[in-house]
Design a protein around this nucleic acid. Structure first.
Lengths: 158, 158
DNA sequence: GTGCTTGCAAAGACTTTGCAAACTT
DNA sequence: AAGTTTGCAAAGTCTTTGCAAGCAC
């Protein structure tokens, strides 16, 4: 049972604990939205999330998705990935500890998440200069696909 | 005459050349919008730009600002600075050659632009791993103001 | 039962677009 | 004169909000 794996249960429990700790209620819609988010291996938009949530619980409405997103972000179970494209993206926060950078292919608009531990140190150094305390950092690299330019196709489904 | 400085003339000429090279027309509104953008030492939103443009040429409309922004960005005279705050920001591209990072104060939402030449190397290295060719990079550090937390005030007008 | 949550539809915020008049070339 | 560009207002897109009914506790 994929939906009952050990990890899934742990994630759900974390979310439930978070809701309780905030005096919020555990609802089927919120759980469906959480599961839908973790069902995506990739980045997703609010609209994607609505669609996937509805496959799990058809009663989920757009409003509920938009209301759930800030909660999921605050709980650190998902994070916002704003890459300056048309839409805002989100993704499940599977490895919250390493600093992640995004490489965005401008040909196919695919977003790659990569570890960039060095950034962490650098960002802190930079903020120290301004006497600010770092909360979060983002490194985004926009790039185009060499393969696509040459061969007209990109192996990574660009 | 501030509006007739050497730099200003150079910028205007660059823009005019760009327009001509694209078969677009040189209009007072477009020039007003360009001047307004370079009149800001800081980041600005589309709405800010409308307001400032109208001080130069009161006939500038919101639609024209929105139509001019992509042209100004394509000409590299301004660039978009998307920091994931409420609005999209833009800024004059005064030093296009150095990689810029943004440090965003989450207390006052002020945005500091800093040089981060090392990022450039790092971003390229990272993109090379994926066989992509770097177009642009952004490093954004969100931080909060220590002074504000302690003293309730921030010298840099946080 | 109490009061947080929900879905719906309407409202909001920001941006884009259709059209006739005005302007650049 | 020919064809772009403009301002206006309307339409779009994405997101938020008000409200009464429904649900978790």
């Amino acid at each position: 049972m994929n939906s009952e794996s050990k990890t899934t249960r742990l994630i759900r429990q974390t979310f439930k604990d978070f809701l309780v700790s905030k005096g919020l209620r555990i609802t089927n819609q919120r759980l469906a939205i959480l599961d839908a988010a973790y069902d995506c291996s990739d980045h997703f938009t609010a609209e994607d999330l609505l669609e996937r949530s509805r496959e799990i619980d058809s009663s989920v409405s757009r409003a509920t998705v938009y209301r759930a997103l800030p909660i999921l972000i605050e709980s650190k179970l998902i994070r916002q990935v704003d890459v300056g494209l048309e839409h805002k993206f989100y993704m499940a926060n599977r490895n919250a500890n390493t600093f992640q950078a995004q490489v965005i292919c401008s040909d196919c608009e695919k977003i790659f998440e990569i570890d960039a531990p060095f950034m962490d140190w650098y960002g802190k150094t930079v903020a120290d200069k301004l006497a600010l305390h770092v909360e979060s950092q983002r490194l985004q690299v926009t790039a185009h696909c060499d393969e696509l330019k040459v061969a007209g196709v990109c192996k990574r489904k660009c």
